[in-house]
Design a protein around this nucleic acid. Structure first.
Length: 559
DNA sequence: GAGTTTGAAACT
DNA sequence: CAGTTTCAAACTC
């Protein structure tokens, strides 16, 4: 039972609350990866199996691919609290604790709080290890007794996750919220002492902080981010992540690596004005408001109850940088296109293969007719009908069939039988696309090819086509971003003089050109086929500021 | 690296 | 539940 905590999460939901993991449950809520390193074990995991057993099952596979992260620890010391550990794209606890008095058996200890064993820590009298599993288990029990949610994630997607009024459009704006809220008094919630700040989220109505400056529109907060141009790589990574999250959907909200305050603008980078335009959702808990009314936003009181959540219009929202370019429907459309491309690729490859086979067959027949006399008794065994073989293959459980079956419930049975898909392609296709597109592709399906090698070739071709199409879209998206950036850069320079902020351009203009360059570079690592069906559009520019040419211009694909 | 500050966790 | 203490990370020098 080497399940990752994420995959175990659903099961755990049936268990008492105390079985849940704290701070590690990123996949479920955040589409991230568990912050669990090899040699570590989450409490949830441990609750799901005998303690003895789990002690010897230290490695937890990452259940799902995650948004790539290359964030290094901010502090040179690498110290941080256990909320958001992440290392170089690997879900791992990045730093060892230094506990002296808690024996690493209390939540003071980041290892303990993260649900991992101490390993190579600088702690003294550590009991958070295999040798002291009994003691540790008792400590876990005690902790859970005090607080059943002690090991659950502190930062959750807000119930305010926003849905557009249009039923199928999920607004990309999200609100991350500290479940308990912080209680900061002196840090202004602008230091990492503050759990909200550390989590890259704005303080919410859950917080009981004093002199809070971690709210949308806070000048102090802005000042903190301004002039902070270090770590461009991180910035770019965050930009890419933000964009990706937005494209993927709300589940990608919280990046555990997003610890750097310098990146906060990426996540909260919309002005209050933005919010009024893009984020029509407010905290539902209006009754919580301490200082209600938009007017309070202009001059934030510097005393008790300056909680940002109390500022009616200061809605803490997450807004992807490419939100104005990448809309949910665009992503859907892109998925649809990719699905079509996939289908076309299979069809084309199969047709080609079938023709090759026919040709080969004819050649063989011609040869045999030459070699044998016209009354030859030897029958050339007719090549089996590919379609028939396809059925046979299915009944025999060929590789292709198995692979398709392994892909799970993504296909209806009939579809599964007739339309081979590589696992990689299946990964690329979201469920909705399966529902949307498969039925439309049922017609004109090519016959399944008889041997595995051909299937493999078809997979390769299919993947190539899909990836190329995706690559093309990404490149166009980059072009859009670049064009927008250029456009809004000039606008913002004008706006600076007029002290007017363009709410729409706000987030877009924060994408540094280098970020685009990085994404572009990444995209270009795809092997480009010289005979690609999907010529690149690298030099394509956005002429009229249309928001989604990156999808629409992919219309060479059969829609 | 030592000392201080800070706020969550633990305790009363 | 509020106040206090303990604790370890964050921060400063």
């Amino acid at each position: 039972m080497e399940e990752g905590i994420q995959s175990a999460a659903p099961a755990a939901s049936d268990l008492p609350p105390k079985k849940l993991v704290r701070q590690l449950d990123f996949t479920t809520a955040y589409c991230g990866v568990p912050a669990v390193a090899a040699g570590t074990l989450p409490y949830e995991h441990q609750q799901l199996q005998p303690l003895q057993k789990q002690m010897h099952a230290p490695t937890l596979p990452t259940p799902r691919p995650s948004i790539p992260m290359s964030i290094k620890p901010e502090s040179p010391k690498g110290r941080s609290r256990p909320l958001f550990e992440m290392k170089e794209g690997t879900p791992t606890r990045k730093k060892n604790c230094n506990c002296k008095h808690s024996r690493c058996l209390k939540l003071y200890c980041e290892c303990f709080a993260s649900g991992v064993f101490c390993d190579g820590c600088n702690c003294a009298n550590c009991c958070n290890n295999v040798e002291n599993e009994a003691t540790r288990h008792e400590a876990v029990e005690a902790t859970l007794e005090r607080n059943p949610n002690a090991f659950r994630p502190k930062i959750g997607n807000s119930p305010h996750s926003i849905r557009d009024s249009k039923e199928d459009v999920v607004e990309t704006t999200l609100v991350g919220k500290h479940n308990k809220g912080c209680h900061c008094k002196k840090s202004g919630c602008l230091k990492k002492y503050c759990e909200c700040f550390q989590a890259n989220i704005l303080c919410s109505e859950n917080c009981k902080c004093i002199d809070c400056k971690n709210f949308e529109g806070s000048e102090e907060r802005k000042a903190l981010h301004h002039g902070d141009h270090g770590n461009a790589l991180t910035y770019m990574q965050q930009a890419a992540n933000a964009a990706l999250n937005g494209a993927i959907g709300p589940s990608g909200y919280f990046s555990p690596a997003s610890k750097k305050r310098k990146n906060q603008d990426l996540f909260f980078g919309t002005s209050v004005k933005d919010q009024s335009i893009h984020s029509p959702v407010q905290y539902p808990n209006a009754g919580h408001v301490k200082n209600s009314g938009p007017s309070s936003l202009a001059s934030v009181p510097t005393g008790r109850a300056a909680n940002p959540a109390s500022l009616g219009s200061a809605k803490a929202t997450y807004r992807p940088l490419l939100a104005d370019i990448v809309h949910t429907e665009d992503v859907k459309e892109l998925c649809r296109i990719l699905a079509v491309v996939s289908g076309e690729a299979v069809k084309t490859a199969a047709d080609k293969s079938f023709q090759d086979e026919k040709h080969l067959e004819m050649e063989e027949q011609a040869e045999s007719s030459l070699a044998l006399s016209s009354n030859d008794k030897i029958e050339t065994p007719a090549r089996p009908d590919p379609q028939k073989i396809s059925v046979d293959d299915q009944s025999n459980g060929t590789h292709a069939d198995k692979m398709t079956e392994e892909s799970g419930s993504d296909f209806a049975d009939g579809q599964r039988a007739r339309r081979p898909m590589s696992p990689g392609t299946l990964e690329l296709m979201c469920d909705e696309q399966d529902m949307m597109c498969m039925s439309s592709q049922n017609n004109n399906l090519p016959p399944i090819l008889p041997n595995n090698q051909r299937m493999t070739e078809m997979y390769a071709e299919q993947e190539k086509c899909v990836l190329m199409a995706f690559r093309e879209s990404l490149l166009k998206l980059i072009n859009c971003g670049t064009a927008k950036e250029a456009k809004f850069s000039s606008m913002s320079s004008k706006a600076e003089t007029s002290s007017h902020e363009d709410p729409v351009s706000n987030s877009i203009s924060r994408i540094p050109a280098s970020a685009n360059a990085q994404v572009s570079q990444t995209v270009n690592t795809f092997p480009a086929s010289s005979n690609s069906h999907f010529p690149l559009a690298r030099n394509q520019t956005l002429e009229n500021g249309a928001l989604k040419p990156w999808v629409e211009s992919t219309d060479h694909v059969d829609k």
